[in-house]
Design a protein around this nucleic acid. Structure first.
Length: 347
DNA sequence: AAATCGGGGTC
DNA sequence: GACCCAGATTT
């Protein structure tokens, strides 16, 4: 049996049951693929269920407010996915009469849909033989064929896409694509793959050369930077606080947060009241303050570490319009802020 | 070509 | 700590 047939047979025997495997509806498949980008099944599945439940059709999603979509997305990360999801839903609902594009080429025009996702939807929903290349596929192909081209290099991206395209089963592109991904996820795993029980172990180049643990090759990522975040949690006598939207580009765009001052170094408690940001914010209004956490909370993102302090400011009247503290949890926010709210206000 | 964009899980 | 995850987009 050849490579592709072996994989699809293996898939028929081993595939896990998942909610998006019981449908070919492009809306559902699209939703699942966006949610699962750079996200493990176990983390994404509850979000998929929640979205299908709250927004059963693309029209329901299109009619929602963006902040509502972001709230449901809260905790999943890579929030541009949620913003693009909502924008594309509006486009499909309003410009395309609710009908999803049905080719790889046209699917690519949707915001948030790149090569992988367009290939996945086109193959799963419309039987187009477009090969998916995700992290699983890179691993399976690099090992089986013994390819050491870095998977995140321009050359590697082209090379693996071409190879995957040459391997796809034209009789059943949907099952083949899902088979190779499922195979990578539970058989040809990143660490300790089960080569003894592998249906491809007799022809796997990496196994023969004993270089399974050296593949795939990946260029090393850029180094992590450190930033210092100081959030100002205001508490007025009428139980309000200031919670504002991050409108600028960057992390957490369009999510909400307490007023933030970034500092180059750790801000000390003696310096807090004299900080220019604080001086301009409160002018001559008297207030008392305290530091919630003496030890920085280090929030780790993939490319930066945020050393965070929460400053509690008790004040008679807010320096600007605020929101009731009781309403804080209605707003979409980061895990960093969400955790603080849970600890500080619910304890 | 490299950087940006999250959060959770594993070893 | 390093690496990974059904990647896309911007710089």
């Amino acid at each position: 049996m050849n490579f592709s047939r072996t994989l699809t047979f293996w898939y028929s025997e081993h595939k896990r049951d998942m909610p998006w495997r019981n449908t070919k509806n492009p809306y559902n498949i699209w939703l699942s693929e966006i949610i699962l980008q750079q996200t493990q099944i176990t983390q994404g599945q509850p979000y998929y269920d929640a979205f299908v439940n709250k927004y059963p059709t693309v029209f329901d999603l299109a009619n929602a407010q963006e902040s509502e979509v972001l709230k449901l997305w809260q905790g999943l990360g890579y929030y541009s996915r949620a913003r693009n999801l909502h924008a594309s839903a509006k486009h499909v609902a309003n410009e395309l009469n609710g009908i999803f594009p049905n080719t790889y080429k046209d699917l690519l025009n949707l915001k948030g849909v790149g090569d992988y996702t367009a290939s996945a939807i086109a193959s799963i929903c419309f039987n187009e033989p477009t090969a998916v290349v995700d992290g699983n596929v890179y691993r399976v192909l690099s090992r089986y064929f013994g390819i050491d081209t870095p998977i995140n290099s321009t050359k590697g991206i082209k090379e693996f896409k071409t190879l995957a395209t040459s391997l796809i089963d034209h009789q059943n592109p949907s099952d083949y694509n899902q088979a190779i991904m499922e195979f990578g996820a539970i058989q040809c795993k990143p660490r300790n793959p089960n080569c003894n029980a592998c249906p491809l172990n007799e022809s796997c180049v990496a196994l023969q050369k004993n270089i399974i643990d050296q593949l795939p090759v990946k260029l090393k990522k850029t180094k992590i930077s450190t930033k210092y975040f100081n959030f100002i949690v205001m508490l007025s006598t009428d139980k309000k606080t200031i919670f504002q939207k991050r409108t600028h580009k960057g992390i957490w765009q369009n999510l909400y947060q307490f007023p933030l001052m970034e500092s180059e170094k750790k801000l000390k408690i003696a310096d807090f009241k004299k900080h220019p940001f604080i001086v301009s914010y409160f002018e001559d209004t008297p207030f008392e303050f305290s530091l919630y956490n003496n030890i920085d909370i280090v929030h780790k993102l993939s490319h930066q570490h945020l050393h965070t302090k929460f400053w509690i400011v008790e004040i008679d009247q807010l320096p600007q319009k605020g929101i009731p503290i009781a309403d804080l949890k209605r707003y979409p926010t980061s895990i960093l802020i969400s955790n603080f709210i849970d600890e500080f206000f619910d304890a």
